[in-house]
């Protein structure tokens, strides 16, 4: 986490009137780090590192570790991306940079 934050803020200091940008970026990074931590825990954590102990728990015929490795992780991935897209909408709104009405510039 500290790595990403450090890298993100290591550029030239933006002028003071751009301080909203720093706050926007910080919020974006924080959300990203939380979601990536979940991504790692569920896939590599439950599905690979802890798969053997979790397999001792059997739910509806599934050893739990196997379920995470072949099913649960995929459900989690889909939800993570949805949460990211929705949450970024909220952050965009908060900072008045929403593109909901097609206000994003066209290259």
């Amino acid at each position: 986490m500290s790595d990403v934050t450090h890298e993100g803020s290591s550029g030239a200091a933006p002028p003071p009137e751009n301080s909203w940008r720093q706050r926007y970026w910080k919020k974006n990074l924080r959300l990203m780090v939380v979601l990536l931590a979940i991504w790692f825990t569920v896939s590599f954590g439950f599905g690979i590192i802890l798969i053997e102990p979790l397999n001792n728990i059997v739910i509806l015929g599934f050893p739990l570790g196997l379920w995470f490795a072949q099913q649960g992780s995929i459900y989690t991935f889909v939800i993570l991306i949805l949460v990211y897209a929705l949450w970024m909408d909220r952050i965009d709104n908060e900072f008045g940079v929403s593109e909901r009405n097609g206000t994003g510039e066209k290259p």
Partner: peptide, 14 residues
């Protein structure tokens, strides 16, 4: 890092 070129309601722009 920022989707829109400028802030629409809050103060400050690029």
């Amino acid at each position: 890092r920022y989707p829109a070129p400028q802030q629409l309601k809050a103060a400050g722009k690029i």
